[in-house]
Amino acid sequence: MKLHCEVEVVSRHLPALGLRNRGKGVRAVLSLSQQTPKNPPRPPAGGERGGQHPACLLISTLKDKRGTRYEQLKENIEQFFTKFVDEGKATVRLKTPPVDICLSKANSSSLKGFLSALRLLHRGCDVEAPLSTLTPVKTKEFEKFKTKMVITSKKDYPLSKNFPYYLEHLQTSYCGLVRVDMRMLCLKNLRKLDLSHNHIKKLPATIGDLIHLQELNLSDNHLESFSVALCQSTLQKSLRSLDLSKNKIKALPVQFCQLRELTDLKLDDNELIRFPFKIGQLTNLRFLSAAQNKLPFLPSEFKNLSLEYLDLFGNTFEQPAVLPVIMLQTPLTLLESSARTILHNR
């Protein structure tokens, strides 16, 4: 039984010695393995089943594939910390040696199953899932920790296997996608998603479940809208960069202005006929590009933006039929101004 995650082993003796742990986990494979004694006993007579050998916890990393072994599990776990298990985090506190095994970036369902097996072994019970053998972890096991994947052709697109769970950057361009692959929406660590140069017509609201997503590139697709559901999702807190250029969008909903963490917005080569009238609420926006659209005017709140870069080339801005007449007032002379002040203050 194995679990892929990040692991940090913290000794509880360090604070007493005035030392600190480095506070950073490493990619690791945790295995619940069956220990095999050096001199295995002869099988019992009469076909009776012998007792199982004790299990151990093996933590293997890319640098140490043979791993660190914690042999005693029965009645040796002091406490489980599982408050954030749904986020893929947990801590197992051992009595001997006095260490805390901190787990993070794990698949939440796999983590729950692994912790359940640990509890059973702590109580001295048998585990239903088969335990692995005590062998060094192979290098290919660590390929599951891949954090970046770039696919730029249809023939390389994975059809029969899932994307690596720990991906943080995924690009699938020129793959002929007509919809967002739902397997992508299970990548909870995703920070950058590039779906440019495809044929996507509609975005699923579940993209908003990618709570860490900071960059979303949807340029050169067939989008006609950006849904209200996405504007009201967790993207409000995470999304920094959005590229919707080269699509068929005519207007953005007013709720789009709730994406207040946006700093970079590209809307070039669409069919935009207006900006949302509350666009001034995008107070963090610094780079805005909306060239080659059909904008006739800018909303009054546009003046509230604090932009460093603005491109509105190639829009159909209308000239007002009648230019406003501004009545200029001649300033008062110093003599008249002082006289009025004396009268006013008596």
Rank of each mutant, 00 (worst) to 15 (best):
M327T: 14
A205H: 08
P97S: 06
Q79R: 12
T68C: 01
Q72A: 14
L323K: 11
L272Q: 07
A55D: 14
A321T: 08
L235Q: 12
L103E: 01
S306R: 07
M149P: 06
F145W: 09
D243G: 09
I326G: 03
T135A: 04
L288Q: 07
K65M: 01
M184C: 08
N221D: 00
E261W: 02
G47P: 03
S337M: 10
V7S: 03
K138H: 02
C5G: 00
P43V: 03
Y174A: 05
L285S: 09
E336R: 09
D194I: 01
E48V: 13
S31H: 06
E224K: 02
L334T: 09
L216M: 08
T234S: 15
L305G: 01
L58A: 10
F287I: 06
H212L: 10
K148S: 14
T172E: 01
D126W: 10
M327C: 12
V180S: 12
F114E: 02
Q281N: 05
S289Q: 03
L185I: 12
L19R: 06
E141T: 03
V85G: 02
V26D: 12
R42N: 05
Q72C: 11
E261M: 14
L185Y: 02
S33R: 08
Q319G: 04
P98E: 13
S289I: 03
S196Q: 01
T152G: 15
C257V: 06
R119Q: 13
V92T: 06
K63Q: 00
L307R: 05
E6P: 02
Y165P: 03
K201Q: 14
R66N: 08
E128I: 13
T341L: 15
K146M: 05
D264G: 01
R191V: 04
D126L: 14
Q258R: 10
A339K: 09
L334D: 05
H344C: 13
K303P: 06
F163E: 15
P164K: 11
N189L: 06
L62W: 00
L134G: 02
M1N: 11
T147G: 06
L19K: 10
K266G: 04
P40Y: 03
V9D: 00
